[in-house]
């Protein structure tokens, strides 16, 4: 009985997806309700993906080149965010003086969206990979800090007492007790951070680029090529999904047993 109804819902889901693409195709290519300058048909999108796989025109790079450029920027920004953000969160949570002095600055900086930094980033760091990665970093490090902070704070006081009773120093207690406890939190932070690094990509590439997925969709707009825009959006979506699926499985391996 239960299996049967599950199957029924799966069928509905599949039909719904098919209907989504069918309606899209009908509205664009078949009945031409929506002009192709506003929304290309799914078929046209597939054609453009096939074409962009090896053709540089009209935006200067092939799709794999764009993907590579974007992964480089996001990857670097994410790594910076993790390497700086996680220790910062841990330090702030473990040492009260660090908390008191750094938290207000952090709370203020996090309210300024990365995109607002673009104009000064040009003057401070230029327009290279580092400048773009810094824009990504600004959005990636926030979840890292918050989650490791919360994770360390969530360590049970009793556990700390026990550690200290057995003669553990403050630093030793941190590494032996608090950080292991915080690990699941830190991982959630990294996951959120990876998502926001990928999301900040488009913003980073507004900084002045010669390739990248965000650049590609901007060029699509400048050239009034809706198909390029949609291809860019889809590729951004797919890679985002792959990245979070990857971290999900990594989490299962690293954080054994209880998650939160």
């Amino acid at each position: 009985m239960k299996k049967k109804s599950k199957l029924k819902f799966q069928i509905i889901s599949i039909i719904s997806l098919i209907a989504f693409f069918a309606i899209w195709q009908l509205l664009t290519d078949v009945y031409r309700v929506i002009p192709s300058t506003m929304l290309p048909s799914p078929v046209k999108v597939l054609q453009t993906i096939g074409m962009k796989w090896s053709v540089k025109k009209p935006d200067g790079s092939t799709l794999p080149q764009h993907i590579l450029a974007s992964l480089q920027v996001s990857g670097l920004g994410f790594c910076l965010g993790a390497v700086i953000g996680v220790p910062l969160g841990v330090i702030m949570a473990w040492w009260e003086k660090a908390d008191l002095s750094l938290k207000p600055v952090f709370d203020f900086v996090r309210t300024i969206p990365p995109i607002a930094w673009i104009p000064i980033m040009i003057v401070l760091l230029g327009i290279g990979v580092v400048a773009k990665a810094s824009i990504v970093f600004l959005s990636a490090f926030i979840p890292c800090v918050i989650n490791s902070y919360t994770g360390i704070k969530a360590t049970k006081t009793v556990h700390i007492w026990v550690a200290q009773t057995f003669g553990g120093s403050k630093t030793r207690t941190l590494f032996k007790v608090a950080i292991p406890t915080a690990l699941p939190y830190i991982f959630t932070g990294l996951k959120v951070s990876l998502n926001s690094s990928w999301g900040a990509l488009v913003a980073a590439e507004m900084l002045g680029s010669a390739s990248g997925l965000g650049y590609m969709i901007q060029m699509g707009r400048l050239l009034s090529r809706a198909d390029l825009i949609v291809v860019g959006m889809i590729v951004i979506g797919i890679i985002g999904t792959i990245l979070s699926a990857f971290l999900d499985s990594l989490e299962k391996i690293v954080v054994k047993g209880e998650v939160r």
Partner: peptide
């Protein structure tokens, strides 16, 4: 070629 408006 790097895409940027003239002021930036």
């Amino acid at each position: 070629l790097v895409n940027m408006d003239t002021a930036p």
